[in-house]
Nucleic acid binder design. Structure first.
Length: 786
DNA sequence: GTATTGTTTTTTTTT
DNA sequence: AAAACAATAC
C-alpha cells in the first residue's frame, strides 16, 4: 500500500477482472463527456474510483488535476479513502468534496477579485435566516401576511440562487405570474446581498453563485482552474441544480473532460432546485458524449429488487430501465402495522435487540424515516434497551446553541466583520446590551461603513452621535477588549487553544450555570467536546503538505479543506457539514432520514412511518402535484434499494405528532408492493407476548390488505378501540372520552368529527372538524354522539 | 434593559 | 412537545 507502482499497477492489470463489461467501459472511457446512467447498487462509486485510478495510472493526469464532486461530505471521505487505498497518499492532492466545499476552496483563493478577503465566513441556514429576518425588520417589511413571512422570502431568494440568479438577474426575469413572495423578495435579496458583502460572508447559495460570477467575470481565475483540472467527475448528477451545472461548465471549458454519474430514479432534491433535465438532456447538450448504462445490481437480494422495481414502475416520467440481479430471492419483504407510533418504535427496537443478542452486529441495521423528528421515539427505545446507535444528520452538533456561541467567537477572530456572529455574542454572556443598543450600533454601521466587531472600535464621538454614551459605551469597550485579546491570542496558538481561551475569557461555563442550571451540565460537556473535536481536527491536519506537485505553486500549505489556517479549516468544516460525519468513533444501529441514506447501504433496513401524510408527506399530498408525489416515490425507491439482505416496512395507525395524536392511513407505497414478495414482519414469541402484556395491537397485514384499507378514502374506520398508553388509570374502563375518528356533539358548534387529540399529559384538547371549520376544544365540552 | 409568562407555530427532506 | 415569539411585569 506504500508503493505506488506496485499497487496501482496491480489494480490496473486486474481492472477487467474487477469490473463487468459496462463498468469497465465506463472506467476506461477517459476523454470527452461521459454519462454513466447507474442504477441503485450497480457499483457506481466503484466505477468512479477505478476510473480516477485508471486516469492516474495511465499518466493522463496528476492527482491534483482531478476534481471530484460528491453529494455529501461522507461520500467524499469514502471516495478519498478508497482512492488512497488504490493509489497511495498522493491522491490527497486531488480535489474531492461537495460542490459547496470545493467552491469555498476556490473562493478562498480567488474571491479577492470580487472584494472578499480569504477569511470570509460561511453562513449556514440558521445564520442567513437570522440575517434575513433582521433585514426584513429594518425594512419595516410587512410580513404579517403568511405569504410574505421570512421563510417564504428566504425560500424565494434560495430558489433564485439555485438558478444562478443575482439580485439584478432575478429582478429582470420576474414574470407576471410571479407570486407575491417572489416579488417581495427582490428588495430583500438586494439588501441581503449587501449585508453579506459587508460582513465578508457568504451563505450556501453564494458559494456556488459567486463562484460562477467569479469565473464569468474574471477570465484569469476561470482559466487557472479550468486549465488545472483536466478531469472533472460528478457523482449523483441527477441532483445537481442550475448553478452547480454552470460551475461545471466553466470548469471544463478548457479540457472538456466531464464525466457524470447518476440515476434519474434517485432524483430526490427537486425541492432544492435540482434539475433532472441536467441528466436527461446530458447527451444532447454534449454532442459526442459516451453513454454507459449500469443496470445490474450487486447489492440486494432478488426480492428487494422486485419490490423496488414495482414501486418505481408507478412513476410516469422516467427513463426506461430496469434493475436486475443474479442474487437469490432472499428473505421476503417484511410488513408490519401498529396501532400507535410508540408501539412501532418499541417493536422494532425489540426486534433489533433480539437479533443483536443472537450475534448480529448492531451496525448492520438502519432505521430510515421521512422526517428527522421521527428519530426521537427510536432513540428513546434504543437507549432504554441499551442498544448502541448512531444518529446521522438531524440537528447536528455544530447547531447546538452553546457550540454556536463559541464558534461565533472563533469566527470573529478570523473575520471581525461577521455581523451574524457579532450579533450572536454581543450579549452572550449577558452584558446588558440589548435591542436598543443594537439598533443604535446599526445606525452607526450605516453611517460609517464599519461592521461587526469593528463597530466597537468607533470613536466615542461617533458612537455618541448615534445615541451611545456613558455606561453602555464602557460595556461595549469591554467586549472589544475581550475580542481583541482573543484575536491576539489566536495569532500564535492552536485552534483548540483559541476555543478554550474563548470559553475562559467569557467565563462561559458560569454563564451556562446561571442561565439554566438544568441543562448546564450537558451544555458544558458539549462545549468541552467542541474543544476536543477541534484538537482532533488539528491532528488530522498535522501531516505533511498535501499539494506536493501543484504547479500553480501559490496555494501551498493547503489543509484538507483548502483553507489557510487550521482554525479556518475547522470553521469551514463546521459550517459545511452537519457534524458527526467526521471522526465517527461511535458504532451502532444507524438512524437516518431517507434523504441522508442516499448513496449508503445496510444489510438490514427498516423503513418506518409508512403512512399517508407521513410518507408521502402531508405537504406533498395537499399540493396535489403529481411531480412531487413522484419525487416521494423515488425517495421510497431509494429507501428500499439501500437494503442488502432484508427490508422491513412499518406503519402506525395513529401517530403522535406535535403533541397530538393523529390518525394516518397506510402509505400508498405499501399498496404498490407486489404481494408475492411480501410477508408479515417476523416477530419472535417474546415480542408477541410482550405486545399482549403492553396492550398494544400489532396487526397482521399484507399488501392487498393495505390496498383495501386505504382505497379511496383518507379516513380509516376502526373496528376496535385504539390501544392506549400512559398511566394505568388513564386506561381504566371503556372511555367516556371521545377518541380520534369518533363523532361528537358540541353545544355551540354542533356535530363534528374528532381528527386529533392532544397527547396525554398536555391540556387534553381535541381538534374537531365542524363542517369545513376546525376548532380546538377542551374535551369535557363535547359528548360522544350515538 | 431584562426576566417572566403566556401564546402561537412547527420548511419534510440538506449543503 | 418543543421552540419561537409576543406581551407584560419588573
Amino acid at each position: 500500500m506504500d508503493s505506488l507502482s506496485a499497487v496501482s499497477g496491480a489494480s490496473y492489470e486486474d481492472l477487467a477482472g474487477l469490473l463487468n463489461p459496462e463498468q469497465l467501459r465506463a472506467a476506461t472511457t477517459i476523454d470527452g463527456p461521459l454519462l454513466i446512467l447507474a442504477g441503485a447498487g450497480s457499483g457506481k462509486t466503484r466505477v468512479l474510483v477505478h476510473r480516477a485510478a485508471h486516469i492516474l495510472h495511465e499518466g493522463r493526469a496528476q492527482p491534483w488535476e482531478l476534481f471530484l464532486v460528491t453529494f455529501t461530505n461522507k461520500a467524499a471521505k469514502e471516495m478519498r479513502e478508497r482512492l488512497e487505498k488504490l493509489i497511495g497518499p498522493e491522491v490527497r492532492s486531488a480535489w474531492i468534496g461537495t460542490f459547496h466545499a470545493l467552491c469555498a476552496r476556490m473562493l478562498r483563493q480567488e474571491g479577492y477579485r470580487l472584494g472578499y478577503n480569504s477569511s470570509f465566513t460561511i453562513y449556514d441556514s440558521d445564520d442567513s435566516k437570522r440575517l434575513v429576518k433582521k433585514i426584513m425588520g429594518e425594512m419595516e417589511f410587512d410580513s404579517s401576511n403568511y405569504a410574505l413571512s421570512p421563510p417564504q422570502i428566504i425560500s424565494a431568494i434560495d430558489r433564485a440562487k439555485n438558478k444562478g440568479l443575482t439580485p439584478e438577474a432575478y429582478k429582470d426575469q420576474l414574470s407576471h405570474f410571479a407570486t407575491p413572495a417572489e416579488r417581495a423578495a427582490v428588495g430583500v435579496y438586494f439588501r441581503y446581498r449587501e449585508a453579506l458583502r459587508r460582513a465578508n460572508a457568504m451563505d450556501f447559495g453564494d458559494l456556488l453563485l459567486i463562484t460562477v460570477e467569479l469565473m464569468k467575470h474574471h477570465a484569469e481565475a476561470r482559466q487557472r482552474f479550468a486549465e488545472r483540472f483536466r478531469y472533472v467527475m460528478v457523482d449523483e448528477f441527477q441532483d445537481t441544480n442550475q448553478v452547480q451545472y454552470e460551475v461545471l461548465r466553466q470548469l471544463v471549458s478548457v479540457h472538456k473532460n466531464l464525466a457524470v454519474v447518476g440515476d434519474d430514479d434517485q432524483s430526490i432534491y427537486r425541492w432544492r432546485g435540482a434539475e433532472v433535465s441536467n441528466i436527461l438532456g446530458f447527451s444532447k447538450a454534449h454532442a459526442k458524449a459516451t453513454v454507459v448504462k449500469l443496470e445490474q445490481n450487486y447489492r440486494s437480494t432478488a426480492n428487494i429488487i422486485t419490490a423496488a422495481n414495482a414501486v418505481i414502475r408507478q412513476n410516469s416520467k422516467r427513463h426506461d430501465k430496469t434493475l436486475f440481479t443474479d442474487s437469490e430471492a432472499g428473505a421476503p419483504v417484511g410488513l408490519a402495522m401498529f396501532d400507535y407510533s410508540d408501539a412501532e418504535a418499541r417493536f422494532i427496537v425489540g426486534f433489533i435487540q433480539e437479533r443483536v443478542a443472537h450475534g448480529e452486529d448492531p451496525t448492520s441495521f438502519a432505521i430510515l424515516y421521512r422526517q428527522n423528528a421521527q428519530s426521537r421515539a427510536f432513540e428513546e427505545q434504543l437507549m432504554r434497551h441499551r442498544v448502541p446507535y448512531v444518529l446521522i444528520g438531524g440537528t447536528g452538533f455544530y447547531d447546538r446553541r452553546e457550540v454556536k456561541d463559541i464558534l461565533a467567537y472563533l469566527r470573529l477572530t478570523a473575520n471581525p466583520r461577521s455581523r451574524a456572529d457579532f450579533e450572536r455574542i454581543i450579549n452572550v454572556p449577558s452584558r446588558k446590551i440589548g435591542a436598543t443598543t443594537l439598533a443604535r450600533l446599526r445606525s452607526a454601521a450605516e453611517a460609517t461603513g464599519a461592521e461587526g466587531a469593528e463597530l466597537l472600535a468607533l470613536s466615542d464621538e461617533t458612537l455618541s452621535q448615534h445615541g451611545l454614551k456613558g455606561a453602555v459605551v464602557k460595556r461595549l469597550r469591554q467586549v472589544r477588549g475581550l475580542l481583541e485579546d482573543l484575536r491576539t491570542f489566536a495569532q500564535d496558538a492552536e485552534a483548540s487553544q483559541v476555543a478554550a481561551e474563548a470559553i475562559s475569557l467569557t467565563d462561559y461555563e458560569a454563564y451556562l450555570d446561571k442561565s439554566d442550571p438544568n441543562s448546564a451540565e450537558d451544555r458544558r460537556a458539549n462545549v468541552q467536546e467542541l474543544v476536543s473535536s477541534i484538537s482532533e481536527h488539528e491532528k488530522v491536519l498535522g501531516g505533511p503538505a498535501f499539494d506536493p506537485g501543484d504547479p500553480s505553486g501559490d496555494d501551498g500549505g493547503f489543509g484538507l479543506a483548502g483553507a489557510k489556517t487550521p482554525l479556518q479549516a475547522f470553521l469551514d468544516q463546521a459550517s459545511l457539514t452537519s457534524g458527526g460525519e467526521e471522526g465517527e468513533v461511535t458504532e451502532g444501529v444507524n438512524l437516518l432520514t431517507l434523504h441522508s441514506a442516499k448513496g449508503l447501504e445496510f444489510p438490514i433496513v427498516f423503513m418506518v412511518g409508512m403512512e399517508e401524510n407521513t410518507f408521502p408527506s402531508r405537504r406533498v399530498i395537499e399540493s396535489d402535484d403529481r411531480e412531487a408525489i413522484e419525487e416521494e416515490r423515488r425517495l421510497c425507491y431509494v429507501g428500499v434499494t439501500r437494503a442488502m439482505k432484508e427490508i422491513h416496512l412499518s406503519a402506525a395507525r395513529v401517530r403522535r405528532i406535535y403533541g397530538q395524536d393523529e390518525a394516518r392511513p397506510p402509505s400508498r407505497f405499501l399498496a404498490e408492493l407486489p404481494p408475492s414478495v411480501v410477508a408479515n414482519m417476523p416477530l419472535t414469541v417474546a415480542q408477541l407476548n410482550g405486545a399482549q402484556a403492553m396492550g398494544m395491537g400489532l396487526q397482521a397485514v399484507s399488501a392487498p390488505a393495505v390496498r383495501a384499507e386505504n382505497r379511496g378514502s383518507d379516513r380509516i374506520e376502526y373496528d376496535r378501540p385504539m390501544a392506549r398508553h400512559g398511566p394505568p388509570d388513564a386506561q381504566a374502563g371503556p372511555s367516556e372520552h371521545p377518541q380520534v375518528g369518533e363523532q361528537v356533539h358540541h353545544n355551540l358548534f354542533g356535530v363534528g368529527l374528532v381528527i386529533a387529540r392532544d397527547a396525554p399529559g398536555s391540556s387534553g384538547r381535541l381538534t374537531i372538524q365542524f363542517g369545513d371549520e376546525q376548532k380546538r376544544v377542551i374535551s369535557k365540552y363535547v359528548e360522544k354522539t350515538g
